[in-house]
Design a protein around this nucleic acid. Structure first.
Lengths: 205, 205
DNA sequence: GTCTATAGTCTGATAGAC
DNA sequence: GTCTATCAGACTATAGAC
């Protein structure tokens, strides 16, 4: 049995190897999806042998599962940080900024999610129906309140959140296409000011 | 050699079977990507035997290639239809409508594209750099002209086009997530009026 | 044109030496 | 903990009967 499963505290090497494997898996799964990825690719990318990969994880699915679970935690943090604190419009613009920064700094994570959703979210369907829906409903209610108070323009809160997701994640998920069209221009710098303009106009009453 | 490769005109049965295969392949490829899909799945979905599939096409890659090539043609039609003819703002809103309709009526096609781009567009990279970029540049110039004439608000034309793509395709590509969050609400009907509001506000000078 | 049978390859996972 | 060797199953594709 792998030591990982015991209660013993993992050694420095173990933590480092697990991290190497998860990083390699992120690279491969985000590009090919769960079914399209192979353990060989992950092993090569991680610089470890295939059996060694399976010493640390109980199989291909376990790696994917671990990756997705750990990611789900941090992926929604920017939305959780959206609170009633100061100027609502500035709050929402900050949220857009945080999401765009995640697309820029963690494009593989974004693509991993995109792949999972695209395939019907077989593994995280429950989290979507439960945790995600609850969080979005909560924040939508907050936005609705701001609208009622006349602090931002009237607009459907749920679809507003979808807009922020789709517009920011597009620059990570469709990176190849964006760069093909823009040529030498720098996508993320431009997107920053573009999206600020867009949402300012949209949210101003 | 398969008759398909000869110059003989394909029979009614052949055309029907090719169509069945391509439709089944669209279903499978759009969900699992090229590498994640299997001929078995496609054959089952098409109601044909695996060898029979390979009688009509020269292999898995040939099916995928045919599918993507045929799709590329029609996928950009809505953008091609964007011309200087009447009210610019109405023209752009019509474009949004047409794109949203494609997401609603051809979600599998949208997801097939998303999968291909997500994986780095190995097969259509050339088309992105050539045909797509040329078309987008052309339409961006048209939009820039409208801005110069003061008919729509000043905004980066390339990113405006990206916005239309991402906002409309989101409802097809992330359908599972959208429905999970919205519950019983109807995504596409709501998106129609939401996006009309959004782009009207964005484009009004 | 369509089938069964199967070749040849790839993939996830295990055994066992060190 | 890490390796080589290897198995069983799944996969693409072909051969050949009908």
């Amino acid at each position: 049995m792998a030591m990982i499963e015991t209660l013993k505290k993992p050694s420095r090497i173990q933590r480092r190897n697990r991290k190497k494997i998860l990083d390699a898996a992120l690279e491969v799964f985000s590009q090919f999806g769960f079914r399209g990825a192979t353990l060989d690719q992950i092993a090569t990318e991680a610089g470890l042998s295939k059996p060694n990969i399976l010493y640390y994880f109980d199989g291909k699915e376990a790696i994917y599962h671990t990756l997705l679970q750990g990611l789900m935690e941090t992926w929604l943090d920017p939305l959780r940080a959206l609170v009633h604190d100061g100027d609502p419009k500035a709050e929402l613009l900050d949220y857009v900024d945080r999401k765009l920064a995640m697309s820029r700094d963690f494009p593989r994570e974004s693509r991993l999610f995109a792949n999972e959703i695209l395939q019907g979210a077989p593994l995280i369907k429950d989290a979507l129906d439960g945790e995600l829906k609850a969080l979005v409903d909560e924040k939508a209610a907050l936005i609705q309140q701001w609208i009622k108070e006349g602090q931002i323009a009237p607009i459907d809160p749920h679809h507003l959140i979808f807009s922020i997701w789709s517009l920011t994640q597009h620059y990570a998920d469709f990176d190849v296409q964006v760069r093909a069209v823009l040529g030498a221009r720098e996508p993320f710098a431009e997107a920053g000011s573009y999206l600020k303009t867009l949402f300012t106009k949209l949210l101003t009453p």
